[in-house]
Amino acid sequence: MRGMATAAKPSAAAPARASRLGVLWTSLVGKKALMAASGIVLFAFVLGHMIGNLQAFGGPARLNRYAELLRVEPPLLWAVRIVLLVAVVVHAVAGIQLWLARRESRPVPYRRYAPTVSTPASRTMIWSGFLVLGFVVYHLLDLTFGVANPSYREGDVFHNLVASLGRGAAAIFYVVAVAGLGVHLWHGLWSMFQSLGVSNRAYTPGIKRFAVTFAVILGVGFAAIPLAVLFGVIGG
């Protein structure tokens, strides 16, 4: 009878015996921490990347010099690329796993559910995530491998950029994607502090300000380039 079940139900395995890394990945808290950590890496990259991209406003020479700079130390470049790759994989896999698990936690959905205070961003992380993922894939084919680029010239980053974003459709997709990134970070940048256990009633207001600020900076900063190219401000 139920009472028996109450006693019978297995309690969590003694943490002492479980392997730390194993628990880190299997436990929901650990997984979220990994997402936060990878999120930080990705955040750092996009921030730097945006600053780099803004060089485009300084003209072809300037952007290309920056691009070359990235390549003077190949081992370093690859190191960075590997770190990024790992981060994206960990982040995406964890995110997708949690998203799938989430459905099992509430098999029967509410007929009517009314959110009260939560932001839409917080409830759509997986979708903004997928958008970003999809974008990155296309983006690499476009500007790194050039296969998706109308007229790819090895080494001439500026040219490739203008060539690609000169097409309205591409430019708009870029803008939408980075807007998605902004939304993702709007919630993500605050949530990661919760996941890492850093926030409390003293810090939270500041953390939320930080999150919004950078979400906007990145969104706008990135969006500026495709728009500038589209309207001929860059490469016009």
Binding site: S11, A12, S27, L28, K32, P115, T116, S118, S122, W190
Partner: peptide, 27 residues
């Protein structure tokens, strides 16, 4: 030990993870 055991039990019971959505605090 407490926090780990309790969160692991919550997982075993089928509760989901926290994505800092904040509806819980509101209600």
């Amino acid at each position: 030990a407490r926090a780990l055991r309790m969160t692991e039990q919550a997982r075993a019971e089928g509760f989901g993870h926290c994505a800092s959505i904040g509806e819980c605090e509101a209600v």
